[in-house]
Simulated scan of single mutants.
Amino acid sequence: MRSKLFVPAARPELFAKALASAADALSFDLEDSVTPERKSEARQTLHDWLVALPAEYRSATPPKQLIVRVNAIDTPYFEADIAAVVQRGVALINLPKPERADDVHFAAECIERAERANGVDSVDGTHMPVRLLLNVESPTALQNAAALASAHPRVAGLQLGLGDLFEPLGIARRETSAISQAMFTLRMAAGVAGVFAYDSAFANIRDEAGFRAEAQLARAMGFLGKSCIHPSQIALANDVFRPSDDEIAHAVRVLEASRTASRDGVGAYVVDGKMIDVPFLERARALVTDAQRMGLLNDAQRDVLAAA
Protein backbone atom coordinates (compact mmCIF):
# COMPACT_ATOMS: atom_id res chain seq x y z
CA MET A 1 0.00 0.00 0.00
CA ARG A 2 2.51 2.56 -1.23
CA SER A 3 -0.17 5.12 -2.03
CA LYS A 4 -3.60 5.71 -0.51
CA LEU A 5 -5.86 8.19 -2.31
CA PHE A 6 -8.53 10.09 -0.40
CA VAL A 7 -11.92 10.10 -2.15
CA PRO A 8 -14.73 12.30 -0.76
CA ALA A 9 -17.76 10.09 -0.18
CA ALA A 10 -19.99 12.99 -1.20
CA ARG A 11 -18.43 12.95 -4.71
CA PRO A 12 -19.63 9.68 -6.32
CA GLU A 13 -18.62 11.00 -9.75
CA LEU A 14 -15.01 10.47 -8.60
CA PHE A 15 -15.40 6.83 -7.53
CA ALA A 16 -14.82 5.21 -10.94
CA LYS A 17 -11.88 7.52 -11.65
CA ALA A 18 -10.32 6.57 -8.33
CA LEU A 19 -10.72 2.85 -9.08
CA ALA A 20 -8.98 3.39 -12.41
CA SER A 21 -6.07 5.26 -10.83
CA ALA A 22 -2.65 3.85 -10.01
CA ALA A 23 -3.22 4.15 -6.25
CA ASP A 24 -2.66 0.97 -4.27
CA ALA A 25 -5.56 1.86 -1.95
CA LEU A 26 -8.56 4.15 -1.88
CA SER A 27 -9.77 5.85 1.29
CA PHE A 28 -13.38 6.95 0.97
CA ASP A 29 -13.91 9.84 3.36
CA LEU A 30 -17.03 10.44 5.43
CA GLU A 31 -15.28 12.81 7.84
CA ASP A 32 -13.57 16.09 6.98
CA SER A 33 -14.54 16.29 3.31
CA VAL A 34 -18.28 15.95 4.03
CA THR A 35 -20.29 18.77 5.60
CA PRO A 36 -22.71 17.90 8.43
CA GLU A 37 -25.78 18.47 6.28
CA ARG A 38 -24.50 15.95 3.71
CA LYS A 39 -23.31 13.22 6.09
CA SER A 40 -26.40 11.05 5.71
CA GLU A 41 -26.50 11.41 1.92
CA ALA A 42 -22.80 10.60 1.54
CA ARG A 43 -23.09 7.58 3.85
CA GLN A 44 -25.98 6.15 1.84
CA THR A 45 -24.24 6.82 -1.46
CA LEU A 46 -21.11 5.01 -0.31
CA HIS A 47 -23.13 2.14 1.15
CA ASP A 48 -24.96 1.58 -2.13
CA TRP A 49 -21.70 1.67 -4.09
CA LEU A 50 -19.97 -0.79 -1.76
CA VAL A 51 -22.87 -3.24 -1.89
CA ALA A 52 -22.61 -3.25 -5.68
CA LEU A 53 -18.84 -3.79 -5.81
CA PRO A 54 -17.54 -6.21 -8.47
CA ALA A 55 -16.68 -9.67 -7.15
CA GLU A 56 -12.94 -9.11 -7.65
CA TYR A 57 -12.98 -6.62 -4.77
CA ARG A 58 -14.44 -9.24 -2.46
CA SER A 59 -11.60 -11.70 -3.05
CA ALA A 60 -8.53 -12.34 -0.90
CA THR A 61 -6.40 -10.41 -3.42
CA PRO A 62 -8.44 -7.40 -4.59
CA PRO A 63 -7.04 -5.01 -7.23
CA LYS A 64 -6.98 -2.24 -4.61
CA GLN A 65 -7.36 -2.04 -0.86
CA LEU A 66 -10.61 -0.26 -0.02
CA ILE A 67 -10.68 1.86 3.14
CA VAL A 68 -13.36 4.05 4.67
CA ARG A 69 -12.55 6.93 6.97
CA VAL A 70 -15.58 7.22 9.24
CA ASN A 71 -16.44 10.01 11.64
CA ALA A 72 -14.93 9.95 15.13
CA ILE A 73 -16.56 7.86 17.85
CA ASP A 74 -17.65 10.94 19.81
CA THR A 75 -19.76 12.24 16.91
CA PRO A 76 -23.42 11.40 16.27
CA TYR A 77 -22.42 9.87 12.93
CA PHE A 78 -20.01 7.13 13.96
CA GLU A 79 -22.29 4.16 14.63
CA ALA A 80 -24.41 4.83 11.55
CA ASP A 81 -21.22 5.06 9.47
CA ILE A 82 -20.00 1.69 10.72
CA ALA A 83 -23.36 0.02 10.18
CA ALA A 84 -23.46 1.26 6.59
CA VAL A 85 -19.89 0.76 5.34
CA VAL A 86 -18.73 -2.46 6.99
CA GLN A 87 -19.31 -4.47 3.84
CA ARG A 88 -17.50 -7.23 1.98
CA GLY A 89 -14.63 -5.66 0.09
CA VAL A 90 -13.78 -3.08 2.73
CA ALA A 91 -10.40 -3.97 4.21
CA LEU A 92 -9.91 -1.18 6.73
CA ILE A 93 -11.92 1.30 8.74
CA ASN A 94 -9.82 4.44 9.22
CA LEU A 95 -10.72 5.70 12.68
CA PRO A 96 -10.02 9.38 13.36
CA LYS A 97 -9.04 10.77 16.73
CA PRO A 98 -8.84 7.70 18.99
CA GLU A 99 -6.89 8.51 22.12
CA ARG A 100 -7.24 5.52 24.44
CA ALA A 101 -7.56 1.76 24.24
CA ASP A 102 -11.24 2.00 25.20
CA ASP A 103 -11.87 3.96 21.99
CA VAL A 104 -10.40 1.12 19.96
CA HIS A 105 -12.39 -1.51 21.87
CA PHE A 106 -15.63 0.37 21.22
CA ALA A 107 -14.87 0.73 17.51
CA ALA A 108 -13.99 -2.97 17.26
CA GLU A 109 -17.24 -3.97 18.95
CA CYS A 110 -19.24 -1.84 16.53
CA ILE A 111 -17.42 -3.36 13.55
CA GLU A 112 -18.12 -6.88 14.85
CA ARG A 113 -21.84 -6.12 15.16
CA ALA A 114 -21.94 -4.67 11.67
CA GLU A 115 -20.14 -7.69 10.23
CA ARG A 116 -22.78 -9.99 11.68
CA ALA A 117 -25.62 -7.76 10.52
CA ASN A 118 -24.22 -7.35 7.01
CA GLY A 119 -23.06 -10.93 6.47
CA VAL A 120 -19.40 -10.01 6.22
CA ASP A 121 -17.37 -13.19 6.53
CA SER A 122 -13.66 -13.83 6.81
CA VAL A 123 -12.01 -14.24 3.42
CA ASP A 124 -9.97 -17.28 4.45
CA GLY A 125 -11.89 -18.48 7.50
CA THR A 126 -9.30 -17.26 10.01
CA HIS A 127 -8.65 -13.54 9.58
CA MET A 128 -11.04 -10.79 10.57
CA PRO A 129 -12.21 -9.26 7.30
CA VAL A 130 -12.44 -5.62 8.45
CA ARG A 131 -9.58 -4.18 10.46
CA LEU A 132 -8.68 -0.78 11.88
CA LEU A 133 -6.27 1.90 10.75
CA LEU A 134 -5.97 4.33 13.66
CA ASN A 135 -5.22 8.00 13.12
CA VAL A 136 -2.71 9.41 15.58
CA GLU A 137 -3.40 13.13 15.45
CA SER A 138 -3.25 14.54 18.98
CA PRO A 139 -0.57 14.74 21.69
CA THR A 140 -2.52 12.26 23.82
CA ALA A 141 -2.82 9.80 20.96
CA LEU A 142 0.89 10.06 20.18
CA GLN A 143 1.73 9.49 23.84
CA ASN A 144 -0.59 6.47 23.90
CA ALA A 145 0.29 5.20 20.42
CA ALA A 146 1.74 1.86 21.54
CA ALA A 147 -1.32 1.18 23.70
CA LEU A 148 -3.62 2.07 20.80
CA ALA A 149 -1.71 -0.20 18.43
CA SER A 150 -1.85 -3.08 20.92
CA ALA A 151 -5.44 -2.53 22.04
CA HIS A 152 -7.19 -5.06 19.79
CA PRO A 153 -6.34 -7.68 17.12
CA ARG A 154 -8.35 -5.68 14.59
CA VAL A 155 -5.71 -2.93 14.59
CA ALA A 156 -3.69 -3.24 11.37
CA GLY A 157 -1.80 0.03 11.46
CA LEU A 158 -1.25 3.54 12.80
CA GLN A 159 -1.51 6.59 10.58
CA LEU A 160 0.13 9.90 11.37
CA GLY A 161 -2.00 13.04 11.14
CA LEU A 162 0.52 15.86 11.20
CA GLY A 163 -1.86 18.72 10.46
CA ASP A 164 -4.16 17.94 13.38
CA LEU A 165 -1.18 17.16 15.59
CA PHE A 166 0.89 20.25 14.87
CA GLU A 167 -1.50 23.12 14.17
CA PRO A 168 -3.11 23.43 17.65
CA LEU A 169 0.38 23.44 19.19
CA GLY A 170 1.77 26.09 16.87
CA ILE A 171 4.34 23.68 15.39
CA ALA A 172 5.23 24.48 11.79
CA ARG A 173 3.90 21.74 9.52
CA ARG A 174 7.14 21.73 7.52
CA GLU A 175 9.51 21.63 10.53
CA THR A 176 11.64 18.61 9.67
CA SER A 177 12.89 17.97 13.20
CA ALA A 178 9.34 17.83 14.53
CA ILE A 179 8.20 15.61 11.66
CA SER A 180 11.11 13.24 12.25
CA GLN A 181 10.36 12.92 15.95
CA ALA A 182 6.66 12.30 15.36
CA MET A 183 7.42 9.70 12.70
CA PHE A 184 9.97 7.91 14.85
CA THR A 185 7.62 7.82 17.86
CA LEU A 186 4.79 6.44 15.74
CA ARG A 187 7.01 3.85 14.06
CA MET A 188 8.31 2.56 17.38
CA ALA A 189 4.75 2.33 18.72
CA ALA A 190 3.65 0.39 15.64
CA GLY A 191 6.66 -1.87 16.09
CA VAL A 192 5.60 -2.71 19.64
CA ALA A 193 2.35 -4.19 18.31
CA GLY A 194 3.71 -5.55 15.03
CA VAL A 195 1.45 -3.34 12.92
CA PHE A 196 2.34 -1.01 10.07
CA ALA A 197 2.94 2.75 10.22
CA TYR A 198 1.46 4.97 7.53
CA ASP A 199 2.39 8.53 6.63
CA SER A 200 0.34 11.70 6.76
CA ALA A 201 -1.23 13.67 3.94
CA PHE A 202 0.68 16.58 2.36
CA ALA A 203 -1.60 19.53 1.68
CA ASN A 204 0.41 21.52 -0.89
CA ILE A 205 -0.54 19.75 -4.10
CA ARG A 206 1.81 21.88 -6.22
CA ASP A 207 4.89 21.17 -4.10
CA GLU A 208 6.03 17.88 -5.59
CA ALA A 209 9.54 18.25 -4.15
CA GLY A 210 8.13 18.74 -0.65
CA PHE A 211 5.86 15.72 -0.98
CA ARG A 212 8.73 13.57 -2.23
CA ALA A 213 11.09 14.70 0.53
CA GLU A 214 8.54 13.93 3.24
CA ALA A 215 7.73 10.56 1.65
CA GLN A 216 11.44 9.71 1.50
CA LEU A 217 11.79 10.52 5.18
CA ALA A 218 8.79 8.29 5.97
CA ARG A 219 10.24 5.43 3.96
CA ALA A 220 13.57 5.81 5.75
CA MET A 221 11.61 5.53 9.01
CA GLY A 222 10.05 2.24 7.91
CA PHE A 223 6.60 3.56 6.96
CA LEU A 224 4.51 1.52 4.54
CA GLY A 225 3.33 4.36 2.30
CA LYS A 226 1.91 7.87 2.13
CA SER A 227 -1.57 9.36 1.95
CA CYS A 228 -2.47 11.27 -1.22
CA ILE A 229 -5.08 14.01 -1.37
CA HIS A 230 -4.81 14.46 -5.15
CA PRO A 231 -4.23 12.00 -8.01
CA SER A 232 -1.05 13.89 -8.98
CA GLN A 233 0.58 12.65 -5.76
CA ILE A 234 0.02 8.95 -6.49
CA ALA A 235 2.97 8.48 -8.85
CA LEU A 236 5.28 10.25 -6.40
CA ALA A 237 4.27 7.96 -3.53
CA ASN A 238 4.47 4.83 -5.67
CA ASP A 239 7.96 5.79 -6.83
CA VAL A 240 9.33 6.60 -3.38
CA PHE A 241 7.96 3.46 -1.72
CA ARG A 242 8.96 1.15 -4.57
CA PRO A 243 11.98 -1.01 -3.70
CA SER A 244 14.87 0.07 -5.90
CA ASP A 245 16.55 -2.37 -8.26
CA ASP A 246 19.71 -2.24 -6.14
CA GLU A 247 17.75 -2.98 -2.96
CA ILE A 248 16.02 -5.93 -4.60
CA ALA A 249 19.28 -7.33 -5.95
CA HIS A 250 20.96 -7.05 -2.54
CA ALA A 251 18.00 -8.68 -0.78
CA VAL A 252 18.03 -11.61 -3.21
CA ARG A 253 21.76 -12.07 -2.63
CA VAL A 254 21.13 -12.05 1.13
CA LEU A 255 18.55 -14.81 0.78
CA GLU A 256 20.82 -16.79 -1.50
CA ALA A 257 23.71 -16.48 0.97
CA SER A 258 21.45 -17.46 3.86
CA ARG A 259 20.91 -20.84 2.23
CA THR A 260 24.65 -21.55 2.27
CA ALA A 261 25.06 -20.14 5.77
CA SER A 262 22.24 -22.33 7.09
CA ARG A 263 23.74 -25.40 5.47
CA ASP A 264 27.14 -24.63 7.01
CA GLY A 265 25.74 -23.71 10.43
CA VAL A 266 26.89 -20.11 10.18
CA GLY A 267 24.84 -17.53 12.10
CA ALA A 268 26.27 -14.36 10.56
CA TYR A 269 27.82 -13.80 7.15
CA VAL A 270 28.86 -11.01 4.79
CA VAL A 271 26.98 -9.91 1.67
CA ASP A 272 28.13 -6.91 -0.39
CA GLY A 273 30.53 -5.97 2.40
CA LYS A 274 27.77 -5.91 5.03
CA MET A 275 27.44 -8.18 8.03
CA ILE A 276 24.14 -10.08 7.85
CA ASP A 277 22.36 -11.73 10.74
CA VAL A 278 18.72 -12.43 11.62
CA PRO A 279 17.29 -8.85 11.61
CA PHE A 280 18.87 -8.11 8.21
CA LEU A 281 17.67 -11.44 6.84
CA GLU A 282 14.11 -10.70 7.96
CA ARG A 283 14.27 -7.30 6.28
CA ALA A 284 15.52 -8.90 3.06
CA ARG A 285 12.65 -11.39 3.11
CA ALA A 286 10.11 -8.60 3.59
CA LEU A 287 11.59 -6.55 0.76
CA VAL A 288 11.61 -9.53 -1.61
CA THR A 289 7.99 -10.27 -0.71
CA ASP A 290 7.08 -6.69 -1.64
CA ALA A 291 9.05 -6.95 -4.88
CA GLN A 292 7.29 -10.21 -5.79
CA ARG A 293 3.89 -8.64 -5.12
CA MET A 294 4.77 -5.70 -7.38
CA GLY A 295 6.15 -7.95 -10.13
CA LEU A 296 9.64 -6.42 -9.89
CA LEU A 297 11.77 -9.58 -9.88
CA ASN A 298 13.61 -10.63 -13.03
CA ASP A 299 13.87 -14.24 -14.20
CA ALA A 300 17.30 -14.80 -12.69
CA GLN A 301 16.13 -13.53 -9.30
CA ARG A 302 13.06 -15.73 -9.41
CA ASP A 303 15.30 -18.72 -10.17
CA VAL A 304 17.53 -17.91 -7.20
CA LEU A 305 14.56 -17.67 -4.87
CA ALA A 306 13.07 -20.90 -6.19
CA ALA A 307 16.33 -22.67 -5.45
CA ALA A 308 16.53 -21.11 -1.99
Rank of each mutant, 00 (worst) to 15 (best):
D246C: 00
A108W: 03
D81C: 06
G163M: 06
D102F: 05
A52S: 14
A190T: 05
N71I: 06
A147P: 04
G267M: 08
L14R: 15
E175C: 03
T176P: 00
A307K: 13
I67V: 13
E247M: 04
E214F: 08
A306P: 00
G210R: 07
A84C: 11
V192D: 02
R154W: 04
R11G: 00
I229Y: 12
V130E: 03
Q216T: 10
H127E: 13
F15T: 01
E56W: 01
N118W: 05
Q87T: 03
V278H: 15
F223T: 05
P153E: 06
T35K: 14
A203Q: 06
A55S: 12
A220W: 08
L142F: 11
S244R: 07
S33T: 15
L53G: 09
I67Y: 08
A156W: 11
A18S: 09
D272R: 07
L165A: 09
N94K: 01
V68Y: 15
A286N: 14
A249K: 10
A114L: 00
A149W: 03
R100T: 14
V120E: 03
V278K: 14
M128Y: 09
V254Y: 09
L160A: 12
V240D: 12
K64V: 00
I179V: 14
G125F: 10
A72E: 08
G210D: 11
E56C: 08
R154D: 01
A52P: 10
R173C: 00
A18K: 01
S244I: 02
E37L: 07
K97G: 01
D103A: 08
V104N: 02
I111A: 08
H105C: 01
A235P: 05
R283P: 05
A213C: 06
L255D: 09
E256G: 06
K226R: 15
P12R: 09
I73T: 08
G157H: 12
L305A: 03
A16M: 07
L162M: 08
R212F: 12
R88V: 00
A117Q: 14
A182M: 02
A83H: 08
L5H: 07
L305V: 00
